[in-house]
Structures are given as C-alpha cells and as structure tokens.
Design a protein around this nucleic acid. Sequence first.
DNA 1: GGTACGGTGCGACAAAGTCGCAATAGTGGT
DNA 2: ACCACTATTGCGACTTTGTCGCACCGTACC
Lengths: 142, 142
Amino acid sequence: MSRLADLPSHGYRRTSQRAAIFEVLERSGGHLTAAEIVGAIEERGLPVNRSTVYRTLETLLDTGMVRASRLGRSTSYEVTHPAGEVEHHHLVCRDCQATLHVTGSGVTDILRAEAAQAGFRVDDVQLTASGVCRRCRRVRRP
Amino acid sequence: MSRLADLPSHGYRRTSQRAAIFEVLERSGGHLTAAEIVGAIEERGLPVNRSTVYRTLETLLDTGMVRASRLGRSTSYEVTHPAGEVEHHHLVCRDCQATLHVTGSGVTDILRAEAAQAGFRVDDVQLTASGVCRRCRRVRRP
DNA sequence: GGTACGGTGCGACAAAGTCGCAATAGTGGT
DNA sequence: ACCACTATTGCGACTTTGTCGCACCGTACC
C-alpha cells in the first residue's frame, strides 16, 4: 500500500500541493470531486490551481493511492487504503440514489485469488452494485 | 432483465432514437462514450442530437438497461445484461492499461445474498479491480 | 383516427478537463 | 549549505462534456 512519503520511490516528487490534495482526500473520508478538492484546499488559505489538482489526481491514480469512480453525475476520487480500513462495497439505489455499504463480504479475497492465477496482482477492488433499496421497493416501481 | 420493448412498462416511450442508441451499445459489445454513440449513429445516416443521447442514456440508466463507468479518462456506457451473458469482471493494469476478464467468480451471488439481508435488490454488479498485470510485474515497477 | 403529453432538435450556456509556456521549487550530488 | 537539473506549478486560453428552455414532433392509448 502507498503513503504520501512513498511518492519518491515511484519517481515522483513530494510537493506541498500533492500533500494538501492527498490530505484533503484522506480527511474527507468520502468521495470528493476535483472542484471540491480545490475548494477544500483554498479554505485553508492555500490556493491551488485546477490544472494542478487534475494532474496530481492523475499521478495519484498511477501510484494506486487514489481511486476514481463515478457514483453520481460527476467523477469523484477517494483514497484507496485509508488507515484502519475495512473492506466495504457500495449498493446504489436507482430510484432514490441512496448509497448503502456492505462490509466483510470477502469478495476482495476471492477476486485476488482468481486474479493470481493469471499472474495479476490485485491492489484495489472497487465494487458497485445497482438495484432498488428496501424503501423504493415498497413504494413499488419495477 | 430489460429489453428495449419493455420501455413502455417503465413509463417511457419507444422511439427510433432510443432504439438506435441501445442497438449501437448492444452491437459494440464494449464501452462507448456519449460522443462515440453520436458518431456511430450518424454513420448510419440517421442524425441524432447530443442532448438526446445524454437524456436517453439517463433514462436507460434509470431502467437499469445500461451501466455507466469510468474505466479510462471519460465516462462510458454499456448494456448491463446482453443476451447470453456470463458473469465477468475487469482487472485493469495501472501500468499498461490492459484489461483482463475474470469469469465465474460467483461474486455476484455473494453480493446479492448480502444485500438481500438489507432488503436491497441487486440488479447489476460492477466490479473493477486495479493492480499490476503479469507482464508489468516482470518489468519491475512497484 | 385523434389527442395529450413525453420526446426531440436546436442553440446557448455551464461545467469539467486539457495544454503550452514561463516561473518555481524539490532532489541528488558536492 | 549550495548548485544545477528537471519535475512540477500557475496561468490563461482552449476543447470537451454535459445541461437547459423552448417550440415542434410523434408515440401510446383511447
């Protein structure tokens, strides 16, 4: 797994902007869009340019420290392996857009084992299931 | 599962544009971006407006006939349950971007069972694992 | 067949993301 | 500590992607 300090070993420099971006993502705990990241950093008095955020996210994706997903309407980012993480996956309701979490399914291990047979090393598993939540099912919409 | 003809039962009308968009997605077999869909349809001589494509994709997402994902740089769409489908998931290499498929992992059933305990009905499972493929591991890049 | 209303095209707009270039600041070596 | 090398940043202009209102069109249901 990757921490900020590992950047140099990936051939990248460690800069204050990258630190800020990563830290904001880490603290938020959830998903942030590029625009939200810019906003969060500027709130701390430290201005950052949009381009920098986009470029940094790209390099963080390369190192596997960050993951991109499109849960709602726009692309959002999150830290892949935060300290004390527990495996969890997302259930998104097509009707009300609510997001539930499923934990401890063991899916990650299964995938890792399957992938290993092909020589593929799995670092991160992103699973999103879509369907209809309990409430919306009762309200009756096929 | 949903076919084009089921649109009315979802409260949507069946139009030639929707048919074209769905068919293009079905035939492509893979992932298409909104722009690619417009292009593919116009190639058949039938012009379509961008807005229509976006709006249609939104309704197809609502019905669960189509799934959105961000594998590469931009959002792409694919049919969720094509005829004769086999459960398969994606392994994407961070170094060379190659995509492998894992089939028959049983992950979908596991998820479905877990979700059912929360009253959630799973219609579609989208799993993407990132890591490093066999080749890139040999070339040695952490 | 007729009609109500959901869907489409269009054009203008907003948001998201990219790029080249000059200035800046890590990093590794001394 | 200092230097030089080069990756990274900021900036601004630009492209791409996605959204919206409105007038017209055509499907579904009677």
